[in-house]
Write a protein that binds this DNA or RNA. Structure first.
Length: 642
RNA sequence: GCUGCUGUAGCUCAGUGGUAGAGCACUCCCUUGGUAAGGGAGAGGCCGACAGUUCAAUCCUGUCCAGCAGCACCA
C-alpha cells in the first residue's frame, strides 16, 4: 500500500500501481470526468500513468494552470497530424511548447505559406472534434527506428538515436496518428478546445545548426479559453503600438534608410533624448570616480592583431585601405584604445583602480538578418568603461559596478532585470589557467552582490567571462544591455603593467563594463518601456504652450521664454487652429505637458496645465508653474541631490 | 548569413500588361474658436534598383538592394 497526499493535506492509502484516473474516480465521479492529467510530487503525468510510492498528488483538470502547457502541446500534435493529412510526404520533426504557444518544425520540399493556415486550422478543428484518446506506448529502439524509417521520417530516426540509452522510447497515439514524444498529454484531442490560432511561418535549422537543412516552422498560440486567446491577441496589438520603430517615426525621433543599413539618422528630438541619457550617465560615472576619455575611431590593423580581434572578430569589422596601403579598422570595441591610454605613462599600484570611460561609437558588421531598428545596429554608441585594477581589487570593483548598474536601471523604472552569467566560449584567447581565475573572480563578485543569476554556459566574450544585464522589449524579446566582463587577457597581450609596492611590474586586471550597453538599444528599450510617454526629464519637447486666440500670442511667447530660461525644452504653438486640434496633435506626439493660454490667462498671468494621458485642467500662476515643472524636469539623480 | 513574405505620395494602404488612386499629413484661403480632428481649395509619385520577356512592364521572369518575421549570430 502507498499513501497519497492531496493538496488539502488529507491523505489516503492506495494499492501501489494505481493510476491517476483511478485515484480521481475514488474521490468523485465528476472529478474523474473533468480530469485530464495528474501531478505527482509536482511532476505532471498522464492520467493513465501509475504510481507505486508515497507521494503528494493533485488531479489536474482542463482549467488548472498546469493544463495550459498540455493544451499547447496537444495542439502541436494535432497540428502535425493535420499537416500530414493535408500534405502527404511532409516529415515531422519536433514540436515543443513555448511561451504563449507552440511550434512544430516540418520538412517539405515546398514551404508552407500563410495561405495554408485556414485549411490547416480547419483540419485541426476536425481532428479535435474526432476526440480520439491520447494513448502512450513504450516501443523498443529498433522497432521505433524501423517504423519511422518505413514512413520516410528520417528526422525522427535521428531523434531516436539522440535519446539517451537509459531513456525509454515513448510513442503517443491519437487515433491512427502517432508521434515520438516525451509527454505528458491530456486524455483526448477533444480537450484542446478551440482557443488556438496559427500565427506565422518561418525557416528554422534542423537542430538549430546553420549547417543543417532548413525546416519550415509553423508557430501557433493556444489557450484554455477564447477569452484568454482574445486577450493575448489584443495584447499583441497593444505591443505593436509601442514598437520603438513605429514610435520613432510618429514622434519624429529617428529614421533609417537604405544607404545606411543598420545606422541611425537621429532627428533633433531623438538626439535630445540621446544627449539627455549621456548627461545622466556622465554625472553618475563622475560620481563613481570614472575619468572620461576618447580614443580613435580607426586604428591600424596591427593593433587589432595584437588584441586578438583580427583573429577572433575579423568578420564583424569594417576596414578601410589608404593610399599608402595601410589597413585600418573601425573600432568594434573601445578596449584596445583604453589599454593604450592606460599604458601611456607609468602607473603605480597607488593609482589603481584606474577607471576610464568613453561614450565611444563602435562599428560592427552584423549579419543582415540580425538588424532590428535601434536594438541591433551596425554602428552604435557605448557608455563603455574599463577598470584597471589589481587582482585583489577585482571582487570589490565588480560589486561596485553591479550596484551602480542596478541603481541606474531603477532610475528608469526597471525593477526586474535579468542577470546572466556567461563562462568561457569555444572561440577564445588565453590559457585555461587564466580563465579559471577570471571566472572565479566574477563568480565571487556575483555572490558578494547577491541577487539571482542565470547561467549561460559558453557564452562569454573571447577574452573573458561576463555578466549580462538583460531587458525585455514590448514584444517580449530580450535584449542584453549592460555587461560586466573580467579580462586577464588583453592587458597581457598589450603588455600593460603597473608598479606594485614590491617595485615589480604587475599585469593589471581589466574589467570591461557598459551599463546602458548601446545608447541606441537603450533608447529603443526606453521608448517601448514608456510607450513614448517619457518622464519629463527625458521628453524631447517637455512643454508646448498652445494659444486659444491670436490675442494671446505675445503672452504665449513670453511664457515659452520664461520656461526656457528655467531650463526647459518648450515650444509655442501659435498656429491658426482651434485648441482641440492643437491638444490632439501634441497628445498624439506625446508631449507631456500642454500649457493652454487664452485671454483669461493673459489677464491673470496664469497658465492652464493639461497633462498627457489626462483630461484634467489645472490653472496656476506662471511663476508657480515654472517652479513646479522645473523641479519635475530634473533627472532622478539631480532630484536626489536636493 | 539562411527560409518565407514585403517594397506604389511624408504616413497607412487600394490598384491595372496600355506610365496611377484614397484617407491622413502638407500648402493656401475662410474661420479667433476654451482642452483629442471647423470649412473650402490646391500641390504632391522614375510604382525599391538593374536586366529580360513583350508592340507595350508599376504589374510577368531573373538578379540585386532594403525592410518585416523566425532561425543562426550577438564581443
Amino acid at each position: 500500500m502507498i499513501t497519497l497526499t492531496f493538496p488539502d493535506g488529507n491523505a489516503r492509502e492506495y494499492q501501489a500501481g494505481i493510476s491517476g484516473l483511478e485515484v480521481a474516480e475514488s474521490i468523485a465521479k465528476s472529478l474523474a470526468k473533468k480530469a485530464v492529467a495528474w501531478a505527482v510530487d509536482g511532476e505532471v503525468l498522464d492520467l493513465a500513468d501509475t504510481v507505486d510510492r508515497d507521494a503528494s498528488i493533485r488531479i489536474v483538470t482542463r482549467d488548472d494552470s498546469e493544463a495550459l502547457e498540455l493544451v499547447r502541446h496537444d495542439c502541436a500534435h494535432v497540428m502535425a497530424e493535420a499537416v500530414q493529412e493535408l500534405y502527404p510526404g511532409t516529415q515531422v520533426t519536433i514540436g515543443p511548447v513555448i511561451e504563449n504557444g507552440f511550434y512544430y518544425d516540418f520538412h517539405r520540399d515546398e514551404p508552407f505559406s500563410l495561405e495554408d493556415f485556414p485549411a490547416i486550422e480547419k483540419k485541426m478543428r476536425e481532428i479535435i472534434q474526432r476526440n480520439k484518446p491520447f494513448t502512450k506506448e513504450i516501443w523498443s529502439r529498433e522497432e521505433t527506428k524501423k517504423v519511422f524509417a518505413e514512413k520516410g521520417e528520417q528526422f525522427k530516426v535521428e531523434l531516436v538515436d539522440a535519446i539517451a540509452e537509459d531513456q525509454t522510447i515513448r510513442i503517443y497515439k491519437q487515433g491512427d496518428w502517432f508521434d515520438l514524444c516525451r509527454g505528458p498529454h491530456m486524455t483526448s484531442t477533444g480537450k484542446i478546445g478551440d482557443a488556438f490560432k496559427l500565427m506565422k511561418v518561418a525557416g528554422a535549422y534542423w537542430r538549430g545548426d546553420s549547417n543543417n537543412p532548413v525546416l519550415t516552422r509553423i508557430y501557433g498560440t493556444a489557450w484554455q479559453s477564447k477569452e484568454d486567446l482574445d486577450a493575448y491577441l489584443h495584447a499583441l496589438e497593444e505591443a505593436e503600438k509601442r514598437d520603438h520603430r513605429r514610435l520613432g517615426r510618429e514622434m519624429d525621433l529617428f529614421h533609417f534608410q537604405e544607404e545606411a543599413p543598420g545606422s541611425v539618422f537621429w532627428h533633433a528630438k531623438g538626439w535630445t533624448l540621446f544627449q539627455e541619457l549621456i548627461s545622466y550617465m556622465r554625472r553618475r560615472q563622475d560620481d563613481a570616480g570614472y575619468q572620461e576619455v576618447n580614443s580613435p575611431d580607426m586604428m591600424d590593423r596591427g593593433l587589432w592583431e595584437q588584441s586578438g580581434h583580427w583573429e577572433k572578430f575579423r568578420e564583424n569589422m569594417f576596414t578601410t585601405e589608404t593610399e599608402d596601403e595601410r589597413t585600418f579598422a573601425f573600432k568594434p570595441m573601445n578596449c584596445p584604445g583604453h589599454v593604450q591610454i592606460f599604458k601611456n605613462g607609468l602607473k603605480s599600484y597607488r593609482d589603481l583602480p584606474v577607471k576610464l570611460s568613453e561614450f565611444g561609437k563602435v562599428h560592427r558588421y552584423e549579419p543582415s538578418g540580425a538588424l532590428h531598428g535601434l536594438m541591433r545596429v551596425r554602428s552604435f554608441t557605448q557608455d563603455d568603461a574599463h577598470i584597471f585594477c589589481a587582482e585583489d581589487q577585482v571582487t570589490a570593483e565588480c560589486v561596485k559596478v553591479h550596484e551602480l548598474m542596478m541603481s541606474i536601471y531603477r532610475d528608469f523604472g526597471f525593477d526586474n532585470v535579468i542577470v546572466k552569467y556567461s563562462d568561457r566560449p569555444e572561440k577564445r584567447v588565453g590559457s585555461d589557467a587564466v580563465w579559471d581565475k577570471s571566472e572565479a573572480a566574477l563568480q565571487h563578485a556575483v555572490e558578494a552582490a547577491g541577487g539571482d543569476v542565470e547561467l549561460n554556459p559558453g557564452e562569454g566574450a573571447f577574452y573573458g567571462p561576463k555578466l549580462e544585464y538583460v531587458l525585455r522589449d514590448a514584444i517580449g524579446r530580450d535584449w542584453q544591455c549592460g555587461t560586466l566582463q573580467v579580462d586577464l587577457n588583453l592587458p597581457d597581450r598589450f603588455g600593460a603593467f603597473y608598479i606594485g609596492n614590491d617595485s615589480e611590474k604587475h599585469t593589471p586586471v581589466m574589467l570591461h563594463r557598459a551599463m546602458f550597453g548601446s545608447l541606441e538599444r537603450f533608447a529603443g528599450i526606453l521608448i517601448e518601456h514608456y510607450a513614448g510617454h517619457f518622464p519629463l526629464w527625458l521628453a524631447p519637447t517637455q512643454v508646448v504652450v498652445a494659444t486659444i486666440t491670436s490675442g494671446a500670442d505675445d503672452y504665449a511667447v513670453e511664457v515659452r521664454d520664461h520656461l526656457r530660461r528655467a531650463g526647459m525644452r518648450v515650444e509655442a504653438d501659435l498656429r491658426n487652429e482651434k485648441i482641440n486640434y492643437k491638444v490632439r496633435e501634441h497628445s498624439v506626439t506625446k508631449v507631456p505637458v500642454i500649457l493652454v493660454v487664452g485671454m483669461r490667462e493673459v489677464e491673470e498671468r496664469a497658465v492652464n496645465i493639461r497633462r498627457l494621458g489626462s483630461r484634467d485642467q489645472t490653472a496656476m500662476s506662471l511663476d508657480e508653474a515654472t517652479a513646479s515643472l522645473g523641479k519635475e524636469a530634473l533627472a532622478p539623480d539631480l532630484k536626489r541631490r536636493d
